[in-house]
C-alpha cells in the first residue's frame, strides 16, 4: 500500500500531504495536518462534527478520502475567524451561549456559515433542516438556532 501525494488548499493556504488511499480527509486534517478543530463523533456522516467545505460545498470530512482533496479548496473551522476577528457566527454563538460542551460547535459553525453563504435570510425552519445533520446533545438546539438567526439578522443589517 503506497501513499498518495496530495496538493490542496486549506483555509486559503497551500497544503501538501501524503496519505494512505483509505484514509479519510478527517484523518488527514487531524492526524497529519494538526487541524484538530474538526471532530470525529461518528465516522459515518451522521453527526456533522467533522463538517468542512470542499469547493464551497458543505460535506462531512469523515465521508471523503484524503486523496480526493487533490486540487480542491478545503475550508475548516480553523479558517472561520479572520486573524483576531471572530466571524459574526462565532461571536453570536458566544453571546447566545449556543454551546455547552462545545465539541459539536466547530461543525455547527462551519455548517451555519455554509447556510448563510447560500441563504443569507433563512427562516427558523430552514435553519433547523439545514443543520439537521449536526447533532448536539447538550443544548436541545434552541440557542444554536437563535444564534444563527441573530447572526443572519445582524449580517443583513450590516
Amino acid at each position: 500500500m503506497s501513499q498518495i501525494h496530495v496538493s490542496t488548499t486549506i483555509n486559503g493556504d497551500p497544503a501538501e500531504f501524503l496519505c494512505e488511499p483509505d484514509e479519510t480527509l478527517l484523518d488527514v486534517l487531524r492526524d497529519r495536518l494538526g487541524l484538530t478543530g474538526s471532530k470525529e463523533g461518528c465516522g459515518s456522516g451522521d453527526c456533522g462534527a467533522c463538517s468542512v467545505t470542499v469547493d464551497d460545498r458543505l460535506v462531512c470530512s469523515c465521508l471523503m478520502l484524503g486523496a480526493e482533496a487533490d486540487g480542491r479548496d478545503i475550508g475548516t473551522i480553523e479558517g472561520l475567524a479572520e486573524g483576531e476577528h471572530l466571524h459574526p457566527l462565532q461571536r453570536k454563538f458566544l453571546d447566545h451561549a449556543a454551546l455547552q460542551c462545545g465539541v459539536c460547535t466547530p461543525g455547527f459553525l462551519v455548517a451555519a456559515k455554509a447556510l448563510l453563504d447560500h441563504n443569507p435570510d433563512p427562516s427558523e425552519t430552514e435553519v433547523r433542516y439545514w443543520l439537521a445533520g449536526n447533532l448536539c446533545r447538550c443544548t436541545g438546539y434552541d440557542k444554536i438556532v437563535r444564534a444563527v438567526l441573530d447572526t443572519a439578522a445582524e449580517m443583513k443589517g450590516a
Binding site: R57, L63, M64, G133
Partner: peptide, 9 residues
C-alpha cells in the same frame, strides 16, 4: 438522502 453535508456528496 441524508443531511445537508451528505447532499453535498
Amino acid at each position: 438522502i441524508g443531511s445537508t453535508q451528505v447532499q453535498g456528496r
